[in-house]
Amino acid sequence: MILATTAPLRAAGLVLRRDLALAFRRWEQVTHPVVFFLMVATLFPLALNPKPSLLADVAAGVVWVSALLSSMLALETLYRADVEDGTLEQLTLTGQPLALLLLAKTVAHWILSGLPLVLAAPVVAIAFGADAAANAVLMTAIALGTAVLSLIGSVGAALTLGSRRGSVLLSLLVLPLIMPVLIFGARATALAMHGESAEGPLWLLGALLILALTLTPFASAAAVRISLE
């Protein structure tokens, strides 16, 4: 296997390229979370009240809750196919740093599930009557937030690989851990929608991302090794 002999960073690049290439063959893996996101957002006006002033008040919260639920749903596909065909086990045997390879897989997963949400979020925000001027902040915040969620979620997905129950268990593990992301992200979005500076919560989201980037790959690697034993 070529992965075993190249430099670690090149190996990670190969994993990333492979996952992206595979996604073009399983296109629904990319589109389903976006459709789910739009559907959940549609539930709120129906459940609450289509009054424009109310919708503008809850816009930031609706976008964030829908985006987090949708990327939570996508987490399940992060390792599943690779466990079924044995690729994940092969990755642990290459001798390359497993944390780095899993980080590459997580980045690929974020490009496929987080990035489409970044593009879809302004559509929902505008449908809820939010000011289009807030879109830059909204997209930055969603990009940072879904990235943190993918990283923390990769640990949860790895922990539930070897267990009997899948997706509900995964949500139980991951949801409490990502509440800070929701708090900072929704706050940044709400500030921008009211025409105020959202710098503070955006920096906090960035800090969360750096922390997650440095810690979670090692936790994921440990979790994958435990699950595959």
Partner: peptide, 18 residues
């Protein structure tokens, strides 16, 4: 054990954010 360790790193962050 992995979950407990990830959780305990998160507890102060959750506390601060809330």
């Amino acid at each position: 054990a992995v979950l407990a360790i990830v959780g305990v790193v998160n507890v102060p962050i959750i506390h601060f954010s809330v």
